[in-house]
């Protein structure tokens, strides 16, 4: 059994003086897609930010592919192969699509799927046609695709996806499910926070339920192995 892609044990996190996460533990195995579900304010976004080092946090164990990252700066965590797509996308609206992608480009790494231009535009055919468009002039769905693509060109081994379906039209959500499934099929490990159960069921192997900043007891759901898996 290889070591897990992401291993969290006893994670606490704070916003200023307010404590948000309480002793949270979870793992994502290599090549696995795991969902984090729970109501608004449960701490899903904070969990992602804590992994990236964007909020004050403390953990007994916080490791990426076996390497301890609990005290690393955000950019170092990213360089270990973690891609992060925040809930509000945060693409650079002043920069064009091509510029957004160029900034995020990092060399391919062993043990992670590589995304060259061909692979990327096969996944996001729309983006290929709007490379010179400023990010600020894209629709919400297009911005979400750009945010995904921007995370992928960093050639991550682990992708943190924060509520990818939020504010996106249902027809686009359908497309997005296919897109994320093919990302997973290429071997990417994924942690998704979601409220859309259909999306979770279509993509994820396991689900953690989170509430008031802690895992709900018994909230870990392994997918029924008798159900037909992807394909």
């Amino acid at each position: 059994m290889s070591r897990p892609m992401l291993e969290i044990e006893g994670l606490d996190a704070w916003y200023g003086a307010a404590r948000i996460l309480f002793d949270l533990s979870l793992t994502v195995a290599r090549g696995e897609a795991v969902a984090l579900i729970g109501p608004n304010g449960a701490g899903k976004t904070t969990t992602m930010k804590a992994i990236m080092g964007l909020v004050r946090r403390h953990a007994r164990r916080l490791s990426i592919d076996g390497q301890d990252v609990a005290t690393l700066a955000t950019f170092r965590i990213a360089r270990l192969g973690v891609g992060y797509v925040p809930e509000d996308r945060r693409i650079f609206t002043d920069l064009t699509v091509a510029e957004n992608l160029a900034l995020a480009r990092r060399p391919a790494r062993a043990g992670a799927p590589a995304w060259d231009e061909a692979a990327l535009f096969a996944l996001f055919p729309n983006l290929a046609g709007m490379l010179d468009r400023p990010g600020g002039q894209m629709s919400g769905g297009e911005q979400q695709m750009l945010a995904l693509a921007r995370a992928l060109v960093g050639n991550p081994a682990l992708l943190l996806l924060d509520e990818p379906s939020e504010g996106v039209a249902p027809i686009i959500v359908e497309q997005m499910i296919e897109t994320i499934r093919s990302m997973k099929a290429r071997g990417l490990s994924i942690l998704i926070s979601e409220q859309n159960i259909d999306l979770c069921n279509a993509i994820c192997d396991r689900t953690y339920e989170i509430e008031h900043g802690a895992l709900r007891p018994g909230g870990l759901v392994e997918k029924n192995s008798s159900r037909p898996q992807n394909e």
């Binding site: 955000t74 950019f75 990213a78 360089r79 650079f92 002043d94």
Partner: peptide, 24 residues
């Protein structure tokens, strides 16, 4: 230039620049 794009990106959202693996 890449340096210039980084300046423009960081002017808008410096946290996101770090998320992309750039040493702020």
């Amino acid at each position: 230039t890449r340096f210039g794009r980084l300046i423009r990106a960081a002017t808008q959202d410096r946290e996101m620049v770090a998320v992309l693996g750039i040493n702020e």
